[in-house]
Write a protein that binds this DNA or RNA. Structure first.
Length: 554
RNA sequence: UGGGGUGUCGUCUAAUGGUAGGACACCAGGUUUUGGUCCUGGCAGUCGGGGUUCGACUCCCUGCGCCCCAGCCA
């Protein structure tokens, strides 16, 4: 399956290597604009670009496409580097900035002017829109289209030196106002923006547009294969036009379909809205599809990379199921996470025949999938907590956990039998009185009798009180983008804060970034805000749970 | 509407003129001191209509659906 199933981009590179189109060189780049945090959609582009380079022994640059000072910030530049590194990729010394090429780009612009391929236009943005035509109507030539080279050179120089206000003039390529591809109707190359750039400060007041800048960036960096998302497909003729007119090194732009995930939004604009309007706690809120959010949630870089390897690369629109991402997450976590016991919604259990005021230590396996993780001791006594939903007074047929008169196993401990249910005024069980079978220590009965359930538990005497953030998807609609207003389909229960959780004592040794399995519940990791005094855990993902599926269905 | 792109199981993705395969999801069973993991089996697809061919997801014609473009955003 892996050998033959090469995606269409790998095949193009194969062919280019065969024909020596780029002298068998492979050099890609990941070119984010620093105007927001990276999300899982970017991860696809990151993995694609770095993996292609690695596969062919080439290199991949990290390049900030910082051509618009208005929306870009240094905070984003730093966050993006953190995220790419965390994902496991290295750009070595190839940290690039489009802004480093402003001088060169400007010279190239002058060259186009001299060749008669660009001109300064005085039309306002509204007038340009008017004269651009429409999908079906041809555009009209600008009255400034036939200015002399000398005048264009002079005006462009004045634009650059700050003689004009924002929007007063632009530099346009002179192509064809009747072109069926709207991108070719004399597109804008430079606009005037009097704003402080996070790197070049006030050195410039003209900034290159994406179409003009991007091919130059690729060319300057000697990129071979310029991979971008599908909406740039009809920008490719323009990408090619600029490089051909300039007659400089010409990389190949190749477009692929971006990643979409169900139950989430992926546009930076929408994610920024969630952050700015406080629907979430920040770009790294564990419910966000951002790399930083997923990291905080307890995702591993490997899970994301594995997912990307399986997602495939093609050109058709797609919406991946969250379930597939979670499959790879669990797959990875299952192998590497240590197991601990924790009770989220405690129900007290008193072992009536356990010796008073005593306790003992029992041995528990840290990770059944990895014997090198070893074992640990856990304490047991006559007062314990189990999970509220592990007990039912009047259980349905297929419920085989604890119930009056029924015997179950406490993991790594003893068999216990429930004898009495203490209830509050409203009839809710608040305490169970059970007896234990001393001969079942460790969890096996010498007489060979079986129990149908094994419950997790903690010792009431030394367990730690903690808060657990239980996260669910941010949206209730599988396709929030198709709603008129994505904010109206938000899941109002995406965060449940459980503050009465009781954790096995050794859980105090875990810190942020260390995801652990709470047996029978799921994977959890300490939040950035955790402390010894007030431990806070995030639920990364639940375990697969065929019982809850059954319970819900009935 | 002009241009560009794209239609294969529920969701992704292979097969490039020669048995429509894989993964996830779902269903059933086995193992199990996690109703987890693991193992086994099952369900399920070529957008429609013509044509070429011994043979079509693949080539041709035609129709239809979906996505992108009218920022001085990227």
């Amino acid at each position: 399956m892996t050998d033959k199933q090469r995606n269409f981009i790998q095949r193009i590179v194969d062919e280019d290597n065969l024909s020596e189109k780029f002298d068998k060189r492979v050099h890609t780049r990941f070119p984010p604009e620093p105007n927001g945090y990276l999300h899982i959609g970017h991860a696809k582009a990151i993995c694609l670009n770095f993996n292609i380079a690695n596969e062919f022994g080439g290199q991949c640059n990290l390049r900030f496409d910082d051509t618009n000072p208005i929306s870009e910030e240094i905070e984003y530049v730093n966050a993006i580097q953190d995220d790419v590194s965390w994902l496991g990729y290295s750009w070595d010394d190839r940290l690039c900035f489009a802004s480093d090429y402003f001088e060169k780009m400007h010279k190239y612009a002058n060259q186009l002017i001299e060749q008669g391929d660009a001109y300064v236009c005085d039309l306002s943005s509204e007038e340009i829109r008017q004269s651009k035509g429409s999908l079906t109507k041809e555009g009209k030539n600008s009255p400034y289209r036939e200015r002399s080279v000398e005048e264009n050179l002079k005006l462009f120089s004045q634009m650059t030196s700050g003689a004009f206000k924002d929007g007063e003039r632009i530099l346009r390529a002179k192509i064809d106002m009747s072109h069926p591809n709207l991108n070719m109707r004399d597109p804008v190359m430079y606009r005037i923006i009097h704003a402080n750039h996070h790197r070049t400060k006030d050195a410039w007041c003209v900034y290159p547009t994406y179409d003009w800048a991007h091919g130059l960036e690729d060319s300057i960096e000697n990129i071979t294969h310029s991979l971008c998302s599908i909406e740039f497909e009809d920008h490719r003729p323009l990408y090619d036009w600029y490089l051909d007119k300039l007659d400089i090194y010409h990389p190949q732009q190749i477009e692929f379909a971006r990643l979409n995930l169900d139950y989430t939004v992926m546009s930076k604009r929408k994610l920024k809205k969630l952050v700015d309007d406080k629907y979430v706690s920040g770009w790294d809120d564990p419910r966000m599809p951002t790399i930083s959010g997923m990291r905080r949630r307890g995702y591993t870089a490997r899970a994301i990379r594995d997912f990307m390897n399986e997602v495939g690369v093609a050109k058709r629109d797609n919406i991946m199921e969250l379930a597939k991402l979670e499959y790879h997450l669990r797959q990875d976590l299952n192998k590497i996470c240590e197991r601990r016991m924790a009770v989220l919604n405690p129900l007290k259990v008193v072992i009536t025949n356990y010796p008073k005021n005593s306790s003992e230590m029992l041995e528990a396996i840290n990770n059944p999938e990895d014997s090198s993780a070893g074992v640990r001791d856990i304490s047991f006594s006559g007062e314990l907590y189990i999970e509220q939903n592990d007990f039912m007074e009047d259980p349905p047929k297929k419920f085989f956990r604890l119930a009056p008169g029924r015997e179950v196993r406490l993991r790594y401990a003893y068999f216990i039998t429930c004898n009495e249910v203490i209830k509050d005024d409203k009839g809710n069980p608040i305490e169970l009185h059970c007896t234990y079978d001393r001969k079942t220590k460790g969890g096996n009965a010498p007489d060979g009798r079986k129990v149908k359930a094994t419950l997790h538990w903690v010792n009431a005497q030394d367990s730690i009180n903690a808060t657990v953030n239980s996260y669910d998807r941010l949206f209730s609609d599988p396709s929030p983008d198709s709603a008129k207003d994505f904010l109206t389909v938000m899941n109002t229960n995406s965060l449940e804060v459980l503050s009465k959780c009781m954790l096995e004592k050794s859980l105090s040794e875990f810190g942020p970034g260390e995801t652990v399995q709470f047996e029978r519940l799921g994977y959890f990791c300490p939040d950035l805000s955790t402390s010894q005094e007030k431990p806070v855990f995030n639920r990364t993902v639940t375990l697969r749970d065929s019982w809850s599926k059954f319970a819900k269905g009935k």
